[in-house]
Amino acid sequence: NRRVIAMPSVRKYAREKGVDIRLVQGTGKNGRVLKEDIDAWLAG
Rank of each mutant, 00 (worst) to 15 (best):
K29N: 10
Q25Y: 15
I38P: 00
N1A: 06
D39Q: 09
K12F: 07
A14D: 00
D20Q: 09
E16W: 09
I38C: 02
D37M: 01
G28I: 03
G26Q: 04
K12E: 05
W41T: 06
R22L: 11
K29C: 04
E16A: 13
M7F: 15
I38E: 00
R22T: 11
P8R: 15
R3W: 04
K35N: 07
R32Y: 07
L34Y: 12
P8G: 07
K29H: 11
G18S: 11
A43T: 14
K35G: 05
A14M: 01
A40R: 14
L42Q: 08
E16C: 06
R3Q: 14
E16Y: 10
I38F: 00
W41H: 11
K17N: 14
K29P: 09
R22Y: 14
A40S: 12
N1V: 10
A6E: 02
I21L: 09
D39F: 05
S9F: 10
L23R: 13
K35A: 08
Q25V: 14
G31N: 10
V33P: 02
I38R: 00
Y13P: 00
V19G: 01
K12Y: 07
V10S: 03
R22M: 11
G26K: 03
Q25L: 14
V19S: 02
V19W: 00
G44V: 14
L34I: 09
G31D: 08
I21S: 02
V33Q: 02
A43P: 08
G44C: 07
A14V: 01
E16M: 11
L34S: 09
I21M: 05
I38D: 00
N30D: 12
D37Q: 01
A6K: 02
R15G: 07
D39P: 00
G44T: 13
A43D: 11
L34V: 10
G28H: 04
W41I: 07
V33T: 09
G31E: 09
S9L: 11
V10P: 01
K17S: 11
G18N: 12
P8D: 05
T27M: 07
N30Q: 11
R22G: 09
L23D: 11
I5F: 05
N1K: 07
L42Y: 09
K29M: 10
R3K: 15
I21N: 00
W41Q: 06
A14K: 00
S9H: 15
Q25E: 14
I38H: 00
D20E: 09
R15Q: 08
R32G: 06
D20S: 07
R2M: 10
L34K: 11
R2N: 15
D20L: 08
M7K: 15
I5Q: 07
